[in-house]
Amino acid sequence: MSPSNIVTIRELSKEYRQGEIDVVALNNISLDIAQGEFLTLMGPSGSGKSTLLHIIAGIDRPTKGICRVQDIDVTKLNESGLADWRNQNVGFVFQTFNLIPVLTAFENVELPLLLTRLSAKRRREQVKTALELVGLADRSKHLPRQLSGGQEQRVAIARALVTDPKLIVADEPTGNLDSSSAQEALSILQLLSKQIGKTVIMVTHDPKAAAFGSRSIHLEKGELTN
């Protein structure tokens, strides 16, 4: 493993059973992702790109292989260990934003910080900084339903970066956005990678979105094609 690699994947496979059929989602994948890289995962539906992203992010488990993020093999962590690890190391951005509808933008962004030992004052400062970074400081008291899709996704990005994680994973983050909102969201992810040095891994179908990344890899039938 190169010292600059944040993610090291070796011979990773994932199989699952769908009815009577065994489906191979990932087949013997090996991959390195460098610190600060903006990697895009592309491929047709069912190619395994989201499965790969989920395994890296610690929300799914492989059938075999190694997935090391920094020094930790996430495949070896138990349920509660994984929950803590995700909270401290990974920020998530989803296609459907996944904000909690009954909480305001501020409270949504603050959620992951409630699991840390930060004081209320420190939490407020961090939430404010994250919302300023995505240009939504003035919308902090709004509920998700009072925001546009683009604004919701920017709140979700603020939530992903508020804990200062090493890794930000985004699963089709522009899938539900119009082109200008998509542009804004991608620009923020790019900025996080280029200027702040965060490692961003994004799954997308859209080649225009993939162009914002520093490297793009393709999957097909669970295998890397380039």
Binding site: E79, S80, D84, R86, F92, F94, N98, I100, L115
Partner: peptide
Amino acid sequence: ARTREIGTLRVLGFRR
């Protein structure tokens, strides 16, 4: 009606 919301909370690190 909010299974995904509960999934999100778990992803963010909240335990069962």
